[in-house]
Design a protein around this nucleic acid. Sequence first.
DNA 1: CGAATAGTGTCTATCAGACAATATAAT
DNA 2: ATTATATTGTCTGATAGACACTATTCG
Lengths: 285, 285
Amino acid sequence: MIWNNFRKDDARLPTFINEREEKHYYETEATEKDYLAWYRQHNSKKYRTPSVTVDNVLFCYNREQDQLKVLLIRRNTHPFRNSWALPGGFVQPEESTDESCLRETATETGVSITSQHIEQLHTFSTPNRDPRGWIITVSYLAFIGEEPLTAGLDAKEALWFSVVRKDDMLHLVNGPNEIILNFQTGKTTAGEQLAFDHAKIISKAFLRVLNKMYHDPKVLRLLGQSFTITEARKVFAKFLGCPHQTIDHSNFKKALRAELVELGEKPVGIGRPSKIFTLKENKKK
Amino acid sequence: MIWNNFRKDDARLPTFINEREEKHYYETEATEKDYLAWYRQHNSKKYRTPSVTVDNVLFCYNREQDQLKVLLIRRNTHPFRNSWALPGGFVQPEESTDESCLRETATETGVSITSQHIEQLHTFSTPNRDPRGWIITVSYLAFIGEEPLTAGLDAKEALWFSVVRKDDMLHLVNGPNEIILNFQTGKTTAGEQLAFDHAKIISKAFLRVLNKMYHDPKVLRLLGQSFTITEARKVFAKFLGCPHQTIDHSNFKKALRAELVELGEKPVGIGRPSKIFTLKENKKK
DNA sequence: CGAATAGTGTCTATCAGACAATATAAT
DNA sequence: ATTATATTGTCTGATAGACACTATTCG
């Protein structure tokens, strides 16, 4: 490579004996503008860079079935062809990973969510976590208000798996498909395997919710705009792995009263009418 | 599929009319081994990928000065030449971002830390956060046991800045250099500016420590292997922005007793001998 | 002894959790 | 009225925080 031949048209610029001298000149003596122009032309493809993906743990809750669910897709391409995996995709230029998460969620599930609904979990970068090569993933957690279309998009099979906690195990079930993983270790223990390190990601998401529920009950966005105390107890019970009756109504309400706003009464239903609540929005993270 | 037009180098493989057909074949019909071989050869350079860096918020605490400090380097290259910035660098192939963090910390400060000392903070990916182009950074938080060499390495000036909290402001000071930032908004308000979005990263680190201190007092690693209750109070006071005397000794000890192990007594010093403690290690995250 | 430092004990308002009582509506 | 569901109220043990007291060492 000829190092003294960069931008002949610009007489301001000196010539260089070697690459190191040129680098030093642009990094320390040239103007920032000249540096950036030089960098884009010479440095941008010099080093190997990883691909970056997002992987999204999308939870929803179905009131009728009283089931917590997580969205998985069956991969129809290599690698991990026919394995279940989290939805996600490659981050594109000129977008943040937050935006990637929202874009992928919208295209894969048809549900529009905002940055208020998502939360960055962790960035996974273990070498060889993806057999295709150097691929880093930024994982996200999102709570979908109501169960949307379950039909797959992008020519993939996309299904909601019910999530049942038993001790430290999560049972992800949809019909004949069953995946069992330990969310303390992040490993699948029986049944089908998950693609890549997605068992770790799901575990991290579940633990995050569990640890923050009472302090930051964002998980109640699973119930949409408004909900009753009992509905909130049912959602918490899914993460605690217990029947919702074991969560005392009175104590639960006391614990969360600071995070909730009362909206009115639910007009229909058996028994005393429930009051309906919504999450306070003014929380500054 | 047409099998009558074999490739010379591998008779097993078919030829394709167009790129799309080829992609479809490898993704869905070929073996995974063949797919991966094809992917590496054809797909690896097809899409633009970002550079990925790590940025490390390294805190230390000096007992003699009773000062919390954060390590900043003065950049001697574009972009942000002469601005103060967090130490960090590009993630290399075949290493995780955790390993990058440890490697960069070792080379920039001379201090060897283990994965026990670091914690991933957040991945920042706002477009144009770096004028050089598409650069994503994974930020880390680390607690250095004792103040190491302050001399810069890598031909950069590296200095420990004392960190003083006043209300929502952090004052980062080293001699004539002073940077003031609001850790609630993540913005510098006066004095010198920080490079890139590093004010946001430092703010995130400070808030993370503040929110988790009592629940997960990993911050006490600032005090090395062992410490007295009063030393621990002094560290907490730095993050709370108050004199350590306002933290009641008795109540503080009660709050942290579950996280500490008593080692013995400190033999020297004025007044009643202090007991020395260390952090319990058995915490599973 | 007195000053300085640090560990220990006590009191109280508050709160989480267990449990009881009341309110409403469908059958 | 009975039953199911939900809300409201009460009691108690535990705890955080304020404060007081005791223990040790140095000058």
